[in-house]
Amino acid sequence: MIISVASGKGGTGKTTIAVNLALSLKNVQFIDCDVEEPNAHLFLKPRIFERIPAYIPIPEVAEDKCDCCGTCQDVCAFNSIAVLPGGIQKDGTVLIFSHLCHGCGACAYLCPRDAIHEIKKTIGIVEKGFSDGIQFVHGKLNIGEAMSPPLIRQVKQHIDPMKSVIIDAPPGTSCPVIESVKGTDYCILVTEPTPFGLNDLILAVEMLKTVGVPFGIILNRYDIGDDCVDLYARENGIPVLMKIPFDRGIASLYSKGLPIIGYKSEYDSEFKKLPGKINTLIKKAKFDT
């Protein structure tokens, strides 16, 4: 079972839910896909035993073979290649803007002179570790690097299907989130009962419908706002899996990098019940389709 935890709006408690859910499970693997701002390691404190650099392929031009025909520039859909044709006095040249490159390989494959080969560009690192029986994997995007989806794909290659897998997704609803939740069996959407929480929840729900992942809601700090999220969930038939009150104790644990499980036992049983609930909902979703 692969469960992803996402939210739309940031700071609603994704990492808190993901970490405590993992701590309530046996034979579990934790995958932090928020490669721009990974935080789960601050709570699980894994011992890292393997560091794997993450690359994307980018083009390199062999100038002796290149005749500046311009094909690579024409086929690049991402404007990451500019060909400056030569003149009488000077040679032409090819400029590569590697930060725009998606690594599709079109330029190398379609170059009529076979002048382009691909080299590896480091965009970040994948780290694997252990934390109290939890297998841990996360990625860290290099500062200044724009594209996180290729790194997220590389983090997800380490998923162990024999385990219960918890995926912590980044905030938002665009490509990095989609890359994180794609292929998971269920997605928990963590939100809060404010107009911001609701607005971003609706966007996240639309996104999950498009990707085809079944989902439910965890309402965090349910007593700080109004009943807008409850009403929305009821009207749209979305299950509310759990409700957590605003609790200064939880906020204080969070601020220190401590989980709820093991420190506030009144929430233990709620987290323990979650996987069972989700399992039932996954079966129901499969039955419905």
Binding site: T15, E36, E37, L42, F43, I143
Partner: peptide, 21 residues
């Protein structure tokens, strides 16, 4: 930022990013 371990961790990466640019 906020005074949590996550807030501090993420602030550092953003400070590095603004520095980079």
């Amino acid at each position: 930022t906020e005074p949590t371990v996550s807030g501090i961790h993420d602030m550092l990466r953003v400070i590095d990013m603004t520095g980079h640019f």
